[in-house]
């Protein structure tokens, strides 16, 4: 079939042809070989002139293919180290193919399907869907979604997507962060190490760029766009996500507040059922928390149904919020 007869090669055909060509080569193809022979490039290749546009196209295609988990490798030609024109590209079969000893049982496939359904929005939902596609490639059929169960985790913070991208690339990021109690947001430049969700809120575990100082940021308090820099860093080898989760869990266990609730109220029912709550006396509850300001907001929503006994900082934080609410909603117009 003469390819010249096709007016335009669809993007997916070009990408597919590139993957096939680079999988088939042992020694790798040079950029020139790719551009002049691979379907989708060769039609636009100018044998005697400038191929700058096509070269940029190839650079973008390499990124897009790598995004999908295809391990596209760059090799220096023997004896020609440093010569960019003679770099060779290939996809090593062993790094591309799912190892033969990995298989999934029917129960595992069903569980993975449920895990994929946890994400219904944003890039995580697309990535889960693609992972399930690869499982189907193995001939595995996930059962119908377990009827009667629909668990989901939300990703609503605007900062999540850029941070997730930066995390995958180990790229330094900059954003403005508004600490509670401060009126001005401050710019932070950090190395993202993990994204974690604890008690329904997303946090970024990060390292201050160029230091070993670890910080945890609440995504909700990132008030600017996240800028991903060109600077990358070498991530530490440990399980940062687990470490950060354990740290938050530790805070949760240590921090307690005692409150009095109105019997039979919404506050009494819900705070009683809140994770870790114990009853210290009739209508008195001991609550756990990670962040005093988050708890203060949670409690101020219950209005007069809850009264903070200890600690004083929490009491003050709640009072400040209640005062703000009154100021914001008092009608100044008395006519």
């Amino acid at each position: 079939m003469p390819p010249q007869s096709q007016p335009r090669i669809p993007v997916e055909e070009r990408l597919f042809s590139l993957v096939l060509a680079l999988l088939a080569t042992e020694t790798g193809l040079t950029k020139g070989e790719v551009l002049s022979t691979v379907q989708g490039y060769r039609q636009k290749f100018n044998a005697s002139g400038d191929n700058a546009n096509l070269e940029r196209q190839f650079e973008r295609d390499k990124d897009d293919i790598r995004e999908l988990g295809v391990p596209l490798e760059t090799l220096e030609s023997p004896g020609q180290a440093g010569n960019n024109q003679n770099l060779r590209y290939r996809i090593p079969r062993g790094a591309y193919e799912l190892p033969a000893d990995i298989s999934f049982s029917a129960e595992e496939t069903t569980l993975l399907n449920l895990a994929a359904m946890v994400w219904r929005e944003g890039s995580l939902s697309g990535e889960s869907r693609r992972a399930m596609l690869k499982l189907r490639s193995l001939g595995l059929t996930p059962d119908e979604p377990v009827l009667g169960y629909a668990p989901r985790v939300r990703v609503r913070d605007a900062a999540f997507e850029p941070l997730n991208t930066a995390l995958a690339k180990s790229a330094v990021v900059t954003f403005s962060y508004l600490k509670p109690g401060e009126t001005n947001a401050r710019a932070r430049t950090v190395e993202p190490l993990a994204l974690i969700q604890h008690q329904g809120r997303w946090y970024l575990a990060a390292r201050e760029a160029g230091t070993d100082v670890r910080k945890t940021f609440l995504l909700r308090r990132i008030v600017s766009k996240v800028t991903i820099s060109n600077r990358s860093f070498t991530p530490p080898s440990g399980d940062e996500a687990e470490h950060a989760l354990r740290e938050l869990e530790g805070l949760w266990n240590t921090n307690t507040a005692e409150v009095r609730v109105t019997a039979g109220s919404d506050a009494a029912t819900r705070l009683h059922k809140r994770r870790g709550t114990t009853e210290t006396a009739s209508d008195r509850l001991l609550l756990h928390y990670t962040d005093i300001n988050i708890l203060a907001e949670e409690l101020s929503s219950f209005g007069p149904e809850v009264f903070v006994l200890t600690p004083t900082e929490l009491r003050d934080a709640v009072v400040t919020r209640l005062q703000q609410l009154v100021t914001d909603h008092q009608d100044t117009d008395r006519g």
Partner: peptide
């Protein structure tokens, strides 16, 4: 010859 691997982000999502 075979099915592709997951990307790092796909595996992380699951």
């Amino acid at each position: 010859d075979d099915s592709p691997r997951f990307s790092g982000r796909e595996a992380a999502a699951l």
